[in-house]
C-alpha cells in the first residue's frame, strides 16, 4: 500500500470525525442548561465598569450573564446560561464569549487570512463546514 493511501486512511476518518464533532457541537438542539464560561485576563472591577463589547452585548437580553473574579489573578470569569425558551443557541454563546474575550484583552477579534487561496472539493466539505463557524464549535 502506498504512503499516500496509508496517510489517506489515517487522515480522512480523523478529519471527518473532528469536523463533524466540531459542527455538531455548534448545532441548536436539546435545551442547553449548563453555563458557558470564559476567563478574561482583565480585572473584575474593570469588566464590571465597562459595557460588555461585541456580540455578547447583542444577546445580553436573551441570556443570563454573571461576572466573578477568577482565582490567582487570572482576571474575570464571564459565565452565560441560556434560559429555557431563549432563541439564542449554544454556538452563538460560544462565539460571543470568545469574541468578547478577544475584544477585552486584545482590543480586536482576529479575522481569518484573506482572500482565500483554496478551492472547494468533495473532501474539503466537512472541514469547510467546521471552519465556516470556527468560533461557534468546540467544548466551551
Amino acid at each position: 500500500m502506498s504512503r499516500t493511501k496509508i496517510a489517506f486512511l489515517i487522515a480522512v476518518p480523523l478529519a471527518a470525525g473532528a469536523a463533524v464533532a466540531a459542527r455538531r457541537r455548534s448545532r441548536p438542539g436539546a435545551p442547553d442548561n449548563r453555563r458557558h464560561v470564559v476567563t478574561v485576563f482583565r480585572p473584575l472591577a474593570e469588566v464590571e465598569s465597562t459595557q460588555l463589547p461585541g456580540s455578547l452585548s447583542e444577546i445580553a437580553g436573551d441570556v443570563r450573564i454573571s461576572l466573578s473574579a477568577a482565582p490567582g489573578g487570572r482576571g474575570t470569569e464571564i459565565a452565560v446560561r441560556i434560559p429555557d425558551g431563549s432563541a439564542v443557541t449554544t454556538g452563538e454563546v460560544r462565539r460571543a464569549l470568545r469574541e468578547t474575550r478577544s475584544l477585552l484583552e486584545a482590543g480586536d477579534v482576529l479575522l481569518p487570512s484573506g482572500p482565500a487561496t483554496t478551492v472547494p472539493t468533495l473532501f474539503n466539505r466537512p472541514l469547510q463546514a467546521a471552519t465556516s463557524n470556527g468560533r461557534e464549535g468546540g467544548l466551551l
Binding site: A18, A19, A21, A22, R25, S26, R98, R101, S102, E105, A106, V109, L110, L111, P112, A130, T131, N133, G134, R135, E136, G137, G138, L139, L140
Partner: peptide
C-alpha cells in the same frame, strides 16, 4: 487564547 480563528477543531 486569541490567535486561532478556528478553535473548535483542536478544542474538540
Amino acid at each position: 487564547d486569541n490567535g486561532n480563528t478556528n478553535p473548535a477543531i483542536t478544542e474538540t
